[in-house]
């Protein structure tokens, strides 16, 4: 279960609720990408939400550039969806996310710093499988009116040598 690094709400009931909301958001994130419901992906973010995919190589080298995706608003994420749906040429493929080791860390007012591990495997249009990426999510999750949304999601790609094109968000 969750390792509570700090105890944000004090009472076990609220803690359990927060855990449940955060878990639900991570589940929804994986579900929309794995079930090809891309349109739901930007809606998991606040309007000014940020979505970054950065390689572990750049993090270790202290580089604030060379992002695979660098989206600084929900609008930019919706633009990605529009482009993938209507503009870009690519082969059909399927994702499957495995997310675990979820750690709820520091609380900052209504926001929670949450880290988790991910593995994304991809199956191509002919049914062949590859491990697309393994890495870590570093999320800042806002819980407002009982609804969790990402303020920021930093995807750190351990697999910093991409084995093929990255079409959907990781």
């Amino acid at each position: 279960m969750v390792q509570a690094i700090s105890n944000p709400m004090g009472t076990p009931d609220n803690n359990a609720l927060i855990e449940r909301l955060i878990y639900t958001l991570l589940d929804d994130y994986a579900d929309c990408l794995d079930s090809d419901e891309l349109e739901k992906w930007p809606e998991l973010f606040v309007e000014t939400g940020k979505y970054f995919i950065q390689s572990r190589e750049n993090i270790e080298a202290g580089k604030d550039g060379g992002y695979w995706m660098y989206y600084t608003s929900q609008g930019m994420m919706r633009d990605r969806v529009t482009s993938l749906r209507h503009i870009n040429t690519y082969n059909k493929h399927y994702y499957r996310h495995l997310i675990n080791n979820i750690k709820i860390g520091e609380r900052d007012n209504d926001s929670f710093h949450v880290r988790s591990n991910f593995l994304v495997v991809q199956t191509d249009f002919e049914g062949k499988f590859e491990c697309l990426n393994a890495g870590e999510y570093r999320d800042v999750i806002l819980i407002h009116d009982g609804k969790p949304r990402f303020k920021e999601k930093l995807v750190i790609a351990d697999t910093f040598h991409a084995p093929s094109a990255i079409v959907y968000p990781l």
Binding site: D64, G65, Y67, Y70, S83, I87, N88, T89, S164, I166
Partner: peptide
């Protein structure tokens, strides 16, 4: 200027709007 570069880097690279199409077509 650096922020412009970071945003425009969305066009190339493994996930780039343009480069991903090249990679997919070349694989095919």
């Amino acid at each position: 200027e650096r922020e412009c570069r970071k945003k425009q880097s969305n066009l190339l690279g493994p996930a780039g709007y343009i480069a991903l199409e090249d990679a997919e077509v070349l694989a095919m």
